[in-house]
Design a protein around this nucleic acid. Structure first.
Lengths: 337, 337
DNA sequence: CTTGGCACTCGGGAACACAGAGTGCTAGAC
DNA sequence: GTCTAGCACTCTGTGTTCCCGAGTGCCAAG
C-alpha cells in the first residue's frame, strides 16, 4: 500500500512543513528533495497518503500538512533520534555541573532543556516513594515545638514544624531522634508506615503521646508529597508557536500540577529510559500539543520524568535527542551526588 | 490649570478605557458619567488634558486613551484603593490557612494573588539577610560527608552536602554542632560571618580543618542566596491582554530572576508596607507593563516583596486593594507560624 | 465659559478583482 | 503498468476602492 517512495514523500512533507510552517506543495517538494520524479507523480502519491489519512490539506488547492497519524508514522519509522552536537554536549555539562543541591539541579535542568529545545521544558522532582530515608532530624525550637526534617537519599529535604502536646526536654527529643533513625535509616519511604506502626508501644509510656504526634506529621508528610512537584521553564517559547488549542489553555495547564503530571505520563516499567512521544490528539489532556518525555534517575532506579511540550509541528528528531541526552546527564549528576 | 471638572473627565476616561479597552469619545463620556455638561465642553477639557500630556489619541478622530502620565495622576490623586469584598476576604483566609511550610505559603500566596487580580502574580521568598538563625544542624551521612542544614526563623531551610577533608566520628560532629549553635542561635544572618570568624581558633587544633570546611560552605550558602528566589503564577492571564511590548518579552522577563527582582523594586525603608506602583515607561526594565507591589512580613520586620504585573491598562484600585490585602494576610500567617 | 452646529479626518469593514500556487484529471510516453 | 506533461479549475490571500460613522476641532451664539 505504502511503497518506499510514498514514505519518502511523507518524510519530505514532514521535514519541509516543520521547517517552513507552510503547507507543502508537490512542485516545491519534487525540487527540494531530489526524488527524481515529477511533481505529477508526487501528486499521485500525495493523493494516496491523504486517502490513508497521513496528510491533509487545509483548503482545496493548498499544499499538504501532516496529520497526527502522519507525524506518528514519521516518528516511528521514518526518522532517527538526532544526537546532540559536541558543542551542545559541552554546554550541558558546564550548565549542570556546579549545582549545589537538588533544587538547583532541577532548576538548571529545566532551563537547560527549554533552551536546548526552544520548547517548554517540564521536569518532575524525584519522587519520594522510591527514595530511601537517609536521616531523620528533630530540631527543638522551643520546649513545645520541634522541627521535623526528613532527608532522603536523593538529596530532598522535607521539613515540618510540630506542635507538641506537652513540654519536652531536649534530651528526650534527642533520644526520640535516635530511636527514629535506628528504625528508619536507609529504609524505603514506602515502607515507613509499617515500620513505625508499633513504635509507640516499644517506648516508655510517657513518651507515647509525643511520639504519636511526631509520627502522624511524618506520615502526613509522606502522603502529601506522594504526587510530586513539577516545574517548567521556557514559557516564552510558546509566544511564537501557534497551537490548535489556545495559548491560554496551554499556560493554564502548565500551572496545574495535576495536568502536567498526566502529560508527562507513566514510565513504562520494562524500559524506563525509553522516550515517550505523544502527538496531538493522542494526548487526552491537552490536545493540539505534543509531548516528548522520558524517565530519568540513577541506574535502574528511575526516579521521575522530564520532557518537553510543544506544538504538534515540532522537530521530533532533534527534540527527542535533546530530551534523551539531558535525561542521561541529569541521571549521572544525581547518581554522583 | 486643571480644575475639578477636568480631573473628573480624566478619571472618567481612565475608568471607561480600563473597562472597555476602547478609546473613549466625548459623547459617550458625557452620557455615561453624569457630568452635566455637553460633549463639546468635554472636548475642550480633553484638548486641555491632551495638551498637558495626560491623554492621547491613537489616531486623529479616535477617542482618547490615558497616557502613563494620566494613569499616574489617576493613581495618585483620583482613585482610592478599593477594599476587597467580604467573600474575597474569606476566600483568602481559607486559601492560605492550612499551608504546611514556607514553600507552601509562598506557592499558595502567588496563586491566590494571580487568581484574585487576574494578572501575573510575583512573590519573593523571604530574604535571608534579615532573618535570624533558628538552628544549625549537622547530619552525618558517612564518615567523610555531612549535610549542613540551616533553619531560619522564617521557616526557611537551606541544606548542603559537605565533603570533609578527613574522616570524622559522629561524636565529634555532634560537638561541632553544639558549638555552632551556641555561637549562632538566634543571631541575624548578616552577622554570621563576623560571629564565626574566630571560631576555628577557639577549637582544638585537630578540629580546625573540618570546621573550616564546614564554615566555608555555610558562608557560601548565605552569600549565594543573598538575592532571593522569586516565583510567579498566572501567566495564563497574559494570554488575553496585549502589551505594547511583545508577549514573548514578558514571559522571558518572568523567568529571569534578576529582572523580576528589579521589577518588584526596593522596599522604601520608612514606610515598608506602602504600595509601589510603577506605570508603563516609569518601569525601566519592562516598559509597557505596570507593576503593583508592596513589602510583606511580620510586624516592622519586612521580609520580602510581592506584587502583580499586568498591562498598563489595568484596574489599579482593585489591583492595589488585592495586593495590599494579600500582603497583610500572608504577613499574619508568617508571624503566626 | 458653555453650547450647538458644522465641516473635516481617518480607521475599519464590505465588495471586488486578480494573481499565484496547488490540485485533479486525462491523454500520451516509456 | 507506471510515470509524465499539459490543462482547466479552485481556492486563498492581497491589494484596491469605496463608504460609513465615530470623533474631532473650530466657530459663533447664548
Amino acid at each position: 500500500m505504502l511503497d518506499d517512495r510514498k514514505l519518502a514523500v511523507l518524510r519530505a512533507i514532514v521535514e519541509d512543513y516543520v521547517s517552513t510552517n507552510e503547507p507543502v506543495g508537490s512542485k516545491a517538494l519534487a525540487e527540494r528533495h531530489n526524488l527524481k520524479v515529477s511533481p505529477a507523480t508526487v501528486r499521485n502519491d500525495m493523493a494516496a497518503l491523504e486517502e490513508e489519512g497521513y496528510i491533509t490539506q487545509p483548503h482545496t488547492s493548498a499544499g499538504r500538512v501532516p496529520t497526527d497519524k502522519g507525524y506518528r508514522l514519521f516518528v516511528d519509522r521514518l526518522s532517527q533520534v538526532k544526537p546532540l552536537s559536541a558543542a551542545e554536549r559541552r554546554a550541558i555539562e558546564t550548565f549542570l555541573v556546579g549545582a549545589v543541591d537538588l533544587d538547583d539541579v532541577v532548576t538548571r535542568t529545566v532551563r537547560l532543556l527549554a533552551q536546548l529545545t526552544r520548547q517548554v521544558a517540564v521536569v518532575q522532582y524525584p519522587t519520594l516513594t522510591r527514595s530511601t530515608v537517609r536521616h531523620v532530624e528533630l530540631v527543638p525550637l522551643s520546649d513545645r515545638r520541634v522541627m521535623l526534617v526528613l532527608i532522603t537519599n536523593t538529596g530532598r529535604v522535607e521539613q515540618r514544624v510540630i506542635e507538641l502536646p506537652e513540654a519536652v526536654e531536649d534530651t528526650r527529643i534527642a533520644h526520640m531522634r535516635a530511636v527514629l533513625n535506628a528504625c528508619l535509616d536507609g529504609c524505603g519511604l514506602s515502607t515507613v508506615p509499617e515500620l513505625v506502626a508499633d513504635l509507640p508501644e516499644r517506648l516508655p509510656l510517657e513518651d507515647r503521646p509525643v511520639v504519636a504526634t511526631i509520627l502522624s506529621v511524618l506520615l502526613e508528610t509522606l502522603v502529601e508529597r506522594h504526587d510530586e512537584k513539577i516545574v517548567f521553564a521556557g514559557a516564552a517559547n510558546l509566544a511564537g508557536a501557534d497551537f490548535s488549542v489556545g495559548l491560554r489553555d496551554v499556560l493554564e495547564a502548565l500551572e496545574e500540577q495535576v495536568v502536567l503530571m498526566r502529560l508527562l505520563g507513566e514510565t513504562s516499567t520494562d524500559t524506563p529510559s525509553a522516550l515517550t512521544v505523544r502527538i496531538g490528539s493522542e494526548n487526552p489532556y491537552l490536545r493540539g500539543t505534543s509531548v516528548v518525555a522520558t524517565g530519568y534517575g540513577s541506574g535502574d532506579n528511575q526516579l521521575a520524568r522530564l520532557g518537553v511540550l510543544g506544538p504538534t509541528r515540532m522537530d521530533y528528531p532533534v527534540t527527542m535527542g535533546a530530551v534523551r541526552a539531558v535525561a542521561r546527564y541529569v541521571s549521572q549528576i544525581l547518581a554522583a551526588s
